[in-house]
Design a protein around this nucleic acid. Structure first.
Lengths: 233, 233
DNA sequence: ACTGTTTCTTGACTTTTATCAATTGCAATG
DNA sequence: CATTGCAATTGATAAAAGTCAAGAAACAGT
Protein backbone atom coordinates (compact mmCIF):
# COMPACT_ATOMS: atom_id res chain seq x y z
CA UNK A 1 0.00 0.00 0.00
CA UNK A 2 1.30 3.45 -0.91
CA UNK A 3 2.27 5.77 1.93
CA UNK A 4 -0.16 8.33 0.62
CA UNK A 5 -3.10 5.92 0.82
CA UNK A 6 -1.97 4.70 4.21
CA UNK A 7 -2.15 8.27 5.45
CA UNK A 8 -5.65 8.77 4.11
CA UNK A 9 -6.86 5.68 5.91
CA UNK A 10 -4.99 6.68 9.04
CA UNK A 11 -6.81 10.02 8.93
CA UNK A 12 -10.20 8.30 9.15
CA UNK A 13 -11.84 8.98 12.51
CA UNK A 14 -12.01 5.23 12.98
CA UNK A 15 -8.23 4.86 12.77
CA UNK A 16 -6.97 8.29 13.80
CA UNK A 17 -6.81 7.60 17.53
CA UNK A 18 -5.43 4.11 17.09
CA UNK A 19 -2.07 3.44 18.73
CA UNK A 20 0.89 3.51 16.38
CA UNK A 21 1.74 -0.12 17.04
CA UNK A 22 -1.78 -1.35 16.42
CA UNK A 23 -1.95 0.37 13.09
CA UNK A 24 1.43 -0.92 12.03
CA UNK A 25 0.24 -4.44 12.70
CA UNK A 26 -2.84 -4.03 10.52
CA UNK A 27 -1.15 -2.38 7.58
CA UNK A 28 1.08 -5.17 6.24
CA UNK A 29 -1.68 -7.80 6.11
CA UNK A 30 -4.26 -5.56 4.50
CA UNK A 31 -4.88 -5.34 0.78
CA UNK A 32 -5.60 -2.23 -1.19
CA UNK A 33 -7.19 -3.41 -4.38
CA UNK A 34 -8.42 -1.66 -7.49
CA UNK A 35 -11.79 -2.71 -8.90
CA UNK A 36 -13.60 -1.65 -12.07
CA UNK A 37 -17.17 -0.39 -11.95
CA UNK A 38 -19.93 -2.85 -11.14
CA UNK A 39 -17.85 -5.41 -9.27
CA UNK A 40 -19.63 -7.40 -6.62
CA UNK A 41 -17.50 -6.98 -3.49
CA UNK A 42 -19.51 -8.85 -0.89
CA UNK A 43 -22.76 -10.82 -0.75
CA UNK A 44 -25.28 -10.78 2.06
CA UNK A 45 -25.17 -14.07 3.93
CA UNK A 46 -21.42 -14.55 3.51
CA UNK A 47 -19.10 -14.66 6.48
CA UNK A 48 -17.43 -11.35 7.27
CA UNK A 49 -13.77 -11.98 6.54
CA UNK A 50 -12.57 -8.45 5.90
CA UNK A 51 -13.40 -4.95 6.97
CA UNK A 52 -13.73 -2.87 3.81
CA UNK A 53 -12.83 0.77 3.32
CA UNK A 54 -13.68 2.80 0.22
CA UNK A 55 -10.47 4.69 -0.45
CA UNK A 56 -11.37 5.92 -3.91
CA UNK A 57 -14.47 5.72 -6.08
CA UNK A 58 -17.84 4.78 -4.63
CA UNK A 59 -19.70 1.75 -3.37
CA UNK A 60 -23.37 0.80 -3.18
CA UNK A 61 -24.72 -1.17 -0.23
CA UNK A 62 -27.85 -3.04 -1.20
CA UNK A 63 -30.05 -5.87 -0.04
CA UNK A 64 -32.23 -8.47 -1.71
CA UNK A 65 -35.27 -10.49 -0.77
CA UNK A 66 -38.71 -11.48 -2.06
CA UNK A 67 -37.32 -11.16 -5.59
CA UNK A 68 -36.74 -7.48 -5.04
CA UNK A 69 -33.58 -5.45 -4.53
CA UNK A 70 -33.04 -2.13 -2.80
CA UNK A 71 -30.20 0.28 -2.17
CA UNK A 72 -29.50 1.01 1.48
CA UNK A 73 -26.58 3.39 1.17
CA UNK A 74 -24.14 4.93 -1.29
CA UNK A 75 -20.66 5.35 0.13
CA UNK A 76 -18.08 7.94 -0.85
CA UNK A 77 -14.42 7.93 0.21
CA UNK A 78 -13.20 7.56 2.85
CA UNK A 79 -15.72 5.29 4.57
CA UNK A 80 -15.45 1.93 6.28
CA UNK A 81 -18.31 -0.48 5.79
CA UNK A 82 -19.71 -3.73 7.20
CA UNK A 83 -18.02 -2.93 10.48
CA UNK A 84 -20.86 -4.45 12.51
CA UNK A 85 -20.67 -7.83 10.77
CA UNK A 86 -16.90 -7.90 11.29
CA UNK A 87 -17.19 -7.14 14.98
CA UNK A 88 -19.90 -9.66 15.65
CA UNK A 89 -18.02 -12.25 13.59
CA UNK A 90 -21.26 -12.77 11.75
CA UNK A 91 -22.63 -12.83 8.21
CA UNK A 92 -23.17 -9.73 6.09
CA UNK A 93 -26.69 -8.35 6.03
CA UNK A 94 -26.04 -6.35 2.89
CA UNK A 95 -24.24 -6.82 -0.38
CA UNK A 96 -21.83 -4.32 -1.87
CA UNK A 97 -20.74 -3.40 -5.38
CA UNK A 98 -18.55 -0.72 -6.87
CA UNK A 99 -20.32 2.08 -8.73
CA UNK A 100 -17.23 3.20 -10.61
CA UNK A 101 -13.53 2.42 -10.75
CA UNK A 102 -12.66 2.17 -7.10
CA UNK A 103 -9.93 1.30 -4.72
CA UNK A 104 -10.95 -0.73 -1.69
CA UNK A 105 -8.88 -1.42 1.38
CA UNK A 106 -9.50 -4.80 2.94
CA UNK A 107 -8.40 -5.51 6.49
CA UNK A 108 -8.70 -9.03 7.91
CA UNK A 109 -11.64 -9.20 10.31
CA UNK A 110 -9.65 -11.13 12.87
CA UNK A 111 -7.08 -8.34 13.11
CA UNK A 112 -9.79 -5.74 13.66
CA UNK A 113 -11.30 -7.75 16.48
CA UNK A 114 -7.88 -8.21 18.02
CA UNK A 115 -7.04 -4.55 17.71
CA UNK A 116 -10.29 -3.67 19.44
CA UNK A 117 -9.41 -5.83 22.41
CA UNK A 118 -5.87 -4.55 22.74
CA UNK A 119 -6.26 -0.89 21.89
CA UNK A 120 -8.67 1.03 24.11
CA UNK A 121 -8.58 4.17 21.99
CA UNK A 122 -9.48 2.15 18.91
CA UNK A 123 -12.31 0.47 20.79
CA UNK A 124 -13.71 3.88 21.67
CA UNK A 125 -13.42 5.01 18.07
CA UNK A 126 -15.34 1.90 17.09
CA UNK A 127 -18.08 2.78 19.56
CA UNK A 128 -18.42 6.19 17.97
CA UNK A 129 -18.43 4.78 14.47
CA UNK A 130 -21.08 2.19 15.31
CA UNK A 131 -23.22 4.73 17.11
CA UNK A 132 -22.98 6.88 14.00
CA UNK A 133 -23.98 3.95 11.83
CA UNK A 134 -26.88 3.07 14.10
CA UNK A 135 -28.25 6.58 14.02
CA UNK A 136 -27.85 6.75 10.25
CA UNK A 137 -29.98 3.63 9.95
CA UNK A 138 -32.62 5.06 12.30
CA UNK A 139 -32.83 8.07 10.02
CA UNK A 140 -33.26 5.84 7.00
CA UNK A 141 -36.13 4.04 8.72
CA UNK A 142 -37.78 7.33 9.63
CA UNK A 143 -37.34 8.67 6.11
CA UNK A 144 -38.92 5.54 4.71
CA UNK A 145 -41.83 5.17 7.11
CA UNK A 146 -42.81 8.79 7.65
CA UNK A 147 -42.59 10.18 4.13
CA UNK A 148 -44.10 9.63 0.71
CA UNK A 149 -41.90 9.04 -2.31
CA UNK A 150 -42.21 12.65 -3.47
CA UNK A 151 -41.34 13.96 -0.02
CA UNK A 152 -38.29 11.74 0.10
CA UNK A 153 -37.13 13.01 -3.27
CA UNK A 154 -37.74 16.64 -2.30
CA UNK A 155 -35.70 16.28 0.87
CA UNK A 156 -32.99 14.39 -0.92
CA UNK A 157 -32.66 17.21 -3.44
CA UNK A 158 -32.49 19.81 -0.68
CA UNK A 159 -29.71 17.88 1.02
CA UNK A 160 -27.78 17.38 -2.20
CA UNK A 161 -28.16 21.04 -3.07
CA UNK A 162 -26.76 22.09 0.30
CA UNK A 163 -23.85 19.69 -0.03
CA UNK A 164 -23.10 21.36 -3.36
CA UNK A 165 -22.95 24.78 -1.74
CA UNK A 166 -26.60 25.68 -2.45
CA UNK A 167 -25.84 26.64 -6.02
CA UNK A 168 -29.23 25.47 -7.20
CA UNK A 169 -27.56 22.99 -9.50
CA UNK A 170 -27.06 19.33 -8.71
CA UNK A 171 -24.98 17.02 -10.87
CA UNK A 172 -26.06 13.51 -10.08
CA UNK A 173 -22.97 11.37 -9.58
CA UNK A 174 -24.94 8.22 -10.46
CA UNK A 175 -27.85 6.98 -12.52
CA UNK A 176 -31.45 7.82 -11.76
CA UNK A 177 -32.32 4.17 -11.34
CA UNK A 178 -29.91 4.05 -8.42
CA UNK A 179 -31.47 7.16 -6.90
CA UNK A 180 -34.84 5.45 -7.30
CA UNK A 181 -33.67 2.32 -5.54
CA UNK A 182 -32.15 4.41 -2.77
CA UNK A 183 -35.41 6.33 -2.32
CA UNK A 184 -37.36 3.09 -2.40
CA UNK A 185 -39.40 3.67 -5.56
CA UNK A 186 -39.41 2.35 -9.10
CA UNK A 187 -37.58 4.38 -11.75
CA UNK A 188 -40.94 5.14 -13.38
CA UNK A 189 -42.27 6.63 -10.20
CA UNK A 190 -39.13 8.65 -9.67
CA UNK A 191 -39.76 10.28 -13.04
CA UNK A 192 -43.29 11.10 -11.92
CA UNK A 193 -42.07 12.47 -8.61
CA UNK A 194 -39.76 14.80 -10.54
CA UNK A 195 -42.74 15.94 -12.58
CA UNK A 196 -44.66 16.69 -9.40
CA UNK A 197 -41.73 18.79 -8.18
CA UNK A 198 -41.70 20.89 -11.35
CA UNK A 199 -44.43 22.97 -9.73
CA UNK A 200 -41.91 23.72 -6.98
CA UNK A 201 -39.18 24.94 -9.29
CA UNK A 202 -37.30 21.70 -9.89
CA UNK A 203 -36.00 21.22 -13.41
CA UNK A 204 -34.66 17.87 -14.36
CA UNK A 205 -32.49 17.26 -17.40
CA UNK A 206 -30.82 13.90 -17.60
CA UNK A 207 -28.17 13.93 -14.88
CA UNK A 208 -28.36 17.59 -13.94
CA UNK A 209 -31.07 18.93 -11.70
CA UNK A 210 -31.85 22.56 -11.01
CA UNK A 211 -33.49 23.70 -7.82
CA UNK A 212 -34.78 27.19 -8.61
CA UNK A 213 -36.99 27.87 -5.62
CA UNK A 214 -35.53 26.18 -2.55
CA UNK A 215 -38.06 28.01 -0.38
CA UNK A 216 -41.07 26.54 -2.11
CA UNK A 217 -39.45 23.13 -2.08
CA UNK A 218 -38.80 23.47 1.64
CA UNK A 219 -42.50 23.95 2.22
CA UNK A 220 -43.36 20.70 0.49
CA UNK A 221 -40.44 18.72 1.84
CA UNK A 222 -40.72 19.80 5.45
CA UNK A 223 -37.08 18.93 6.08
CA UNK A 224 -36.26 17.61 9.51
CA UNK A 225 -32.80 17.64 11.04
CA UNK A 226 -33.62 14.43 12.89
CA UNK A 227 -33.93 12.69 9.53
CA UNK A 228 -31.93 14.64 6.99
CA UNK A 229 -28.84 15.87 8.81
CA UNK A 230 -25.95 13.49 8.26
CA UNK A 231 -24.48 12.02 11.42
CA UNK A 232 -21.28 13.76 12.31
CA UNK A 233 -18.35 12.00 13.85
CA UNK B 1 -32.27 0.25 43.97
CA UNK B 2 -33.04 -3.24 45.25
CA UNK B 3 -30.25 -5.81 45.15
CA UNK B 4 -32.44 -8.07 43.07
CA UNK B 5 -32.91 -5.44 40.38
CA UNK B 6 -29.26 -4.55 40.51
CA UNK B 7 -28.41 -8.13 39.75
CA UNK B 8 -30.77 -8.26 36.79
CA UNK B 9 -29.16 -5.20 35.28
CA UNK B 10 -25.73 -6.57 36.07
CA UNK B 11 -26.64 -9.73 34.18
CA UNK B 12 -27.30 -7.75 31.00
CA UNK B 13 -24.65 -8.49 28.37
CA UNK B 14 -23.92 -4.79 28.30
CA UNK B 15 -22.97 -4.73 31.98
CA UNK B 16 -21.91 -8.31 32.68
CA UNK B 17 -18.26 -7.89 31.74
CA UNK B 18 -17.96 -4.49 33.38
CA UNK B 19 -15.34 -4.21 36.13
CA UNK B 20 -16.71 -4.37 39.66
CA UNK B 21 -15.52 -0.89 40.47
CA UNK B 22 -17.05 0.68 37.39
CA UNK B 23 -20.43 -0.82 38.13
CA UNK B 24 -20.30 0.27 41.74
CA UNK B 25 -19.73 3.80 40.62
CA UNK B 26 -22.75 3.81 38.33
CA UNK B 27 -25.20 2.21 40.73
CA UNK B 28 -25.57 4.88 43.41
CA UNK B 29 -26.26 7.73 41.00
CA UNK B 30 -28.77 5.84 38.91
CA UNK B 31 -32.50 5.91 39.43
CA UNK B 32 -34.86 3.01 39.16
CA UNK B 33 -38.25 4.50 38.66
CA UNK B 34 -41.72 3.06 38.33
CA UNK B 35 -43.99 4.49 35.62
CA UNK B 36 -47.60 3.80 34.78
CA UNK B 37 -48.66 2.84 31.27
CA UNK B 38 -48.50 5.45 28.54
CA UNK B 39 -45.89 7.69 30.11
CA UNK B 40 -43.73 9.67 27.75
CA UNK B 41 -40.16 8.87 28.81
CA UNK B 42 -38.12 10.74 26.24
CA UNK B 43 -38.77 12.97 23.23
CA UNK B 44 -36.86 12.98 19.99
CA UNK B 45 -34.77 16.10 19.73
CA UNK B 46 -34.02 16.29 23.45
CA UNK B 47 -30.49 16.03 24.77
CA UNK B 48 -29.52 12.54 25.92
CA UNK B 49 -29.07 12.89 29.67
CA UNK B 50 -29.64 9.32 30.77
CA UNK B 51 -29.16 5.84 29.44
CA UNK B 52 -32.46 4.01 29.94
CA UNK B 53 -32.97 0.34 30.72
CA UNK B 54 -36.35 -1.41 30.70
CA UNK B 55 -36.19 -3.52 33.86
CA UNK B 56 -39.85 -4.46 33.96
CA UNK B 57 -42.83 -3.84 31.68
CA UNK B 58 -42.35 -2.72 28.09
CA UNK B 59 -41.45 0.36 26.12
CA UNK B 60 -42.25 1.61 22.64
CA UNK B 61 -39.70 3.50 20.58
CA UNK B 62 -41.40 5.70 18.03
CA UNK B 63 -40.69 8.63 15.76
CA UNK B 64 -42.70 11.49 14.35
CA UNK B 65 -42.55 13.69 11.29
CA UNK B 66 -44.68 15.07 8.47
CA UNK B 67 -47.65 14.86 10.85
CA UNK B 68 -47.30 11.11 11.02
CA UNK B 69 -46.02 8.79 13.73
CA UNK B 70 -44.51 5.34 13.51
CA UNK B 71 -43.29 2.65 15.87
CA UNK B 72 -39.68 1.64 15.39
CA UNK B 73 -39.31 -0.98 18.12
CA UNK B 74 -41.06 -2.55 21.08
CA UNK B 75 -38.70 -3.35 23.94
CA UNK B 76 -39.10 -6.09 26.53
CA UNK B 77 -37.02 -6.45 29.71
CA UNK B 78 -34.12 -6.36 30.09
CA UNK B 79 -33.03 -3.99 27.32
CA UNK B 80 -31.04 -0.79 27.26
CA UNK B 81 -32.13 1.88 24.83
CA UNK B 82 -30.90 5.15 23.30
CA UNK B 83 -27.36 4.01 23.86
CA UNK B 84 -26.16 5.63 20.63
CA UNK B 85 -27.46 9.08 21.56
CA UNK B 86 -25.84 8.80 24.99
CA UNK B 87 -22.49 7.83 23.55
CA UNK B 88 -22.44 10.52 20.93
CA UNK B 89 -23.63 13.07 23.49
CA UNK B 90 -26.28 13.98 21.01
CA UNK B 91 -30.04 14.38 20.78
CA UNK B 92 -32.49 11.48 20.71
CA UNK B 93 -33.70 10.42 17.29
CA UNK B 94 -36.68 8.57 18.73
CA UNK B 95 -39.22 9.10 21.46
CA UNK B 96 -40.13 6.49 24.03
CA UNK B 97 -43.23 5.72 26.08
CA UNK B 98 -44.23 2.94 28.44
CA UNK B 99 -46.77 0.44 27.14
CA UNK B 100 -47.73 -0.83 30.59
CA UNK B 101 -46.69 -0.35 34.19
CA UNK B 102 -42.93 -0.42 33.91
CA UNK B 103 -39.79 0.09 35.87
CA UNK B 104 -37.04 1.99 34.12
CA UNK B 105 -33.46 2.31 35.20
CA UNK B 106 -31.87 5.63 34.35
CA UNK B 107 -28.09 6.00 34.36
CA UNK B 108 -26.54 9.44 33.88
CA UNK B 109 -25.11 9.70 30.37
CA UNK B 110 -21.92 11.30 31.60
CA UNK B 111 -21.18 8.29 33.80
CA UNK B 112 -21.68 5.90 30.91
CA UNK B 113 -19.27 7.85 28.75
CA UNK B 114 -16.75 7.92 31.57
CA UNK B 115 -17.12 4.22 32.22
CA UNK B 116 -16.51 3.52 28.56
CA UNK B 117 -13.23 5.40 28.63
CA UNK B 118 -11.98 3.81 31.80
CA UNK B 119 -13.21 0.25 31.47
CA UNK B 120 -11.99 -1.58 28.39
CA UNK B 121 -14.23 -4.59 28.92
CA UNK B 122 -17.27 -2.31 29.11
CA UNK B 123 -16.18 -0.52 25.96
CA UNK B 124 -16.04 -3.85 24.15
CA UNK B 125 -19.48 -4.77 25.43
CA UNK B 126 -20.73 -1.48 24.11
CA UNK B 127 -19.26 -2.25 20.70
CA UNK B 128 -21.16 -5.52 20.63
CA UNK B 129 -24.38 -3.89 21.77
CA UNK B 130 -24.13 -1.13 19.18
CA UNK B 131 -23.27 -3.61 16.43
CA UNK B 132 -26.35 -5.57 17.46
CA UNK B 133 -28.46 -2.43 17.35
CA UNK B 134 -27.09 -1.43 13.97
CA UNK B 135 -27.86 -4.81 12.46
CA UNK B 136 -31.34 -4.77 13.95
CA UNK B 137 -32.00 -1.47 12.22
CA UNK B 138 -30.66 -2.81 8.92
CA UNK B 139 -33.15 -5.63 9.20
CA UNK B 140 -35.96 -3.20 9.84
CA UNK B 141 -35.02 -1.27 6.72
CA UNK B 142 -34.93 -4.45 4.66
CA UNK B 143 -38.26 -5.60 6.06
CA UNK B 144 -39.78 -2.27 5.16
CA UNK B 145 -38.32 -1.79 1.70
CA UNK B 146 -38.42 -5.34 0.39
CA UNK B 147 -41.84 -6.53 1.55
CA UNK B 148 -45.49 -5.62 1.17
CA UNK B 149 -47.66 -5.03 4.22
CA UNK B 150 -49.18 -8.52 4.06
CA UNK B 151 -45.76 -10.12 3.77
CA UNK B 152 -44.54 -8.18 6.78
CA UNK B 153 -47.51 -9.34 8.81
CA UNK B 154 -47.08 -12.95 7.71
CA UNK B 155 -43.43 -12.97 8.72
CA UNK B 156 -44.16 -11.20 11.97
CA UNK B 157 -46.71 -13.88 12.85
CA UNK B 158 -44.26 -16.66 12.01
CA UNK B 159 -41.64 -15.09 14.27
CA UNK B 160 -44.09 -14.56 17.11
CA UNK B 161 -45.35 -18.11 16.78
CA UNK B 162 -41.82 -19.49 17.04
CA UNK B 163 -41.08 -17.32 20.05
CA UNK B 164 -44.16 -18.84 21.65
CA UNK B 165 -42.89 -22.36 21.08
CA UNK B 166 -44.70 -22.90 17.78
CA UNK B 167 -47.98 -23.69 19.52
CA UNK B 168 -50.00 -22.16 16.71
CA UNK B 169 -51.48 -19.69 19.16
CA UNK B 170 -50.26 -16.14 19.63
CA UNK B 171 -51.49 -13.88 22.42
CA UNK B 172 -50.76 -10.34 21.37
CA UNK B 173 -49.17 -8.52 24.29
CA UNK B 174 -50.33 -5.17 22.88
CA UNK B 175 -53.05 -3.57 20.81
CA UNK B 176 -53.42 -4.14 17.11
CA UNK B 177 -52.99 -0.44 16.40
CA UNK B 178 -49.47 -0.74 17.80
CA UNK B 179 -48.77 -3.78 15.68
CA UNK B 180 -50.00 -1.77 12.70
CA UNK B 181 -47.70 1.13 13.48
CA UNK B 182 -44.79 -1.25 13.95
CA UNK B 183 -45.50 -2.91 10.59
CA UNK B 184 -45.86 0.49 8.96
CA UNK B 185 -49.53 0.28 7.93
CA UNK B 186 -52.77 1.84 9.09
CA UNK B 187 -54.94 -0.17 11.51
CA UNK B 188 -57.55 -0.52 8.75
CA UNK B 189 -55.03 -2.09 6.44
CA UNK B 190 -53.80 -4.41 9.13
CA UNK B 191 -57.33 -5.77 9.41
CA UNK B 192 -57.38 -6.32 5.68
CA UNK B 193 -54.00 -8.01 5.76
CA UNK B 194 -55.36 -10.41 8.39
CA UNK B 195 -58.28 -11.15 6.09
CA UNK B 196 -55.90 -11.94 3.26
CA UNK B 197 -54.05 -14.36 5.53
CA UNK B 198 -57.24 -16.24 6.39
CA UNK B 199 -56.70 -18.17 3.18
CA UNK B 200 -53.40 -19.31 4.70
CA UNK B 201 -54.89 -20.61 7.93
CA UNK B 202 -54.61 -17.52 10.08
CA UNK B 203 -57.55 -16.94 12.43
CA UNK B 204 -57.76 -13.65 14.22
CA UNK B 205 -59.95 -13.01 17.25
CA UNK B 206 -59.39 -9.83 19.18
CA UNK B 207 -55.99 -10.27 20.81
CA UNK B 208 -55.46 -13.96 20.09
CA UNK B 209 -54.25 -15.18 16.73
CA UNK B 210 -54.15 -18.78 15.57
CA UNK B 211 -51.70 -19.97 12.96
CA UNK B 212 -53.14 -23.28 11.76
CA UNK B 213 -51.00 -23.96 8.70
CA UNK B 214 -47.50 -22.60 9.25
CA UNK B 215 -46.35 -24.33 6.09
CA UNK B 216 -48.77 -22.51 3.85
CA UNK B 217 -47.95 -19.26 5.59
CA UNK B 218 -44.24 -19.91 5.07
CA UNK B 219 -44.83 -20.10 1.34
CA UNK B 220 -46.45 -16.69 1.25
CA UNK B 221 -44.14 -15.04 3.76
CA UNK B 222 -40.85 -16.31 2.34
CA UNK B 223 -39.10 -15.82 5.66
CA UNK B 224 -35.49 -14.79 5.50
CA UNK B 225 -33.00 -15.22 8.33
CA UNK B 226 -31.20 -12.07 7.19
CA UNK B 227 -34.34 -10.10 8.02
CA UNK B 228 -36.33 -12.06 10.58
CA UNK B 229 -33.79 -13.66 12.89
CA UNK B 230 -33.26 -11.49 15.96
CA UNK B 231 -29.70 -10.36 16.50
CA UNK B 232 -28.04 -12.44 19.16
CA UNK B 233 -25.54 -11.03 21.58
C1' DA C 1 -22.58 10.26 -38.77
C1' DC C 2 -24.70 5.88 -38.07
C1' DT C 3 -26.08 1.93 -35.26
C1' DG C 4 -27.14 -0.54 -31.42
C1' DT C 5 -27.70 -0.29 -26.57
C1' DT C 6 -29.28 1.58 -22.52
C1' DT C 7 -31.47 4.91 -19.59
C1' DC C 8 -35.12 7.65 -18.93
C1' DT C 9 -39.68 9.08 -19.67
C1' DT C 10 -44.59 8.68 -20.76
C1' DG C 11 -49.13 6.59 -20.95
C1' DA C 12 -52.58 3.22 -19.68
C1' DC C 13 -53.75 0.21 -16.30
C1' DT C 14 -53.53 -2.60 -11.89
C1' DT C 15 -52.42 -3.24 -7.29
C1' DT C 16 -51.48 -1.59 -2.95
C1' DT C 17 -52.24 1.43 0.61
C1' DA C 18 -54.51 5.36 2.85
C1' DT C 19 -58.56 8.00 4.14
C1' DC C 20 -63.11 8.82 5.76
C1' DA C 21 -67.31 7.32 7.71
C1' DA C 22 -70.04 4.04 9.84
C1' DT C 23 -70.66 -0.08 12.41
C1' DT C 24 -69.53 -3.90 15.28
C1' DG C 25 -68.03 -5.96 19.37
C1' DC C 26 -65.75 -6.28 23.51
C1' DA C 27 -64.95 -4.76 28.27
C1' DA C 28 -65.26 -1.81 32.02
C1' DT C 29 -68.49 0.99 34.85
C1' DG C 30 -72.01 2.36 37.54
C1' DC D 1 -77.82 -5.16 32.85
C1' DA D 2 -77.96 -1.26 30.21
C1' DT D 3 -74.45 2.24 29.05
C1' DT D 4 -70.50 4.18 27.75
C1' DG D 5 -66.03 4.17 25.61
C1' DC D 6 -62.78 2.54 22.74
C1' DA D 7 -60.49 -0.81 19.70
C1' DA D 8 -61.28 -3.22 15.70
C1' DT D 9 -63.54 -4.03 11.57
C1' DT D 10 -65.99 -3.07 7.26
C1' DG D 11 -67.27 -0.55 3.19
C1' DA D 12 -66.72 3.10 -0.16
C1' DT D 13 -63.59 6.01 -2.19
C1' DA D 14 -59.22 8.28 -3.16
C1' DA D 15 -54.42 8.55 -3.42
C1' DA D 16 -49.99 6.48 -3.94
C1' DA D 17 -47.12 3.32 -5.95
C1' DG D 18 -46.16 -0.59 -9.08
C1' DT D 19 -46.41 -2.93 -13.69
C1' DC D 20 -46.28 -3.35 -18.52
C1' DA D 21 -45.49 -1.59 -22.97
C1' DA D 22 -43.94 1.81 -25.96
C1' DG D 23 -41.32 5.76 -27.31
C1' DA D 24 -37.64 9.44 -26.73
C1' DA D 25 -33.27 10.81 -25.52
C1' DA D 26 -28.50 10.06 -24.45
C1' DC D 27 -24.34 7.30 -25.01
C1' DA D 28 -20.71 4.08 -26.85
C1' DG D 29 -18.53 2.03 -30.39
C1' DT D 30 -17.73 1.54 -35.05
Amino acid sequence: MRDQDLERVRALPLFASMAEGTFDRLAPTSYLQRFPSGVHLISEGDEADFLHVVVEGSVELFASGNSRETTVAILQPVTAFILAAVLKDSVYLMSARTLENSRILMIPAELIRQAMEEDGAFCQAMVRELARGFRTMVKIVKNQKLRTATERLANCLLVMNEQNGSTGRIDLPFEKRLLASYLGVTPENLSRAFKTLEAYGVRNSRSTIYVDEPNGLHELAQPNALIDASEEW
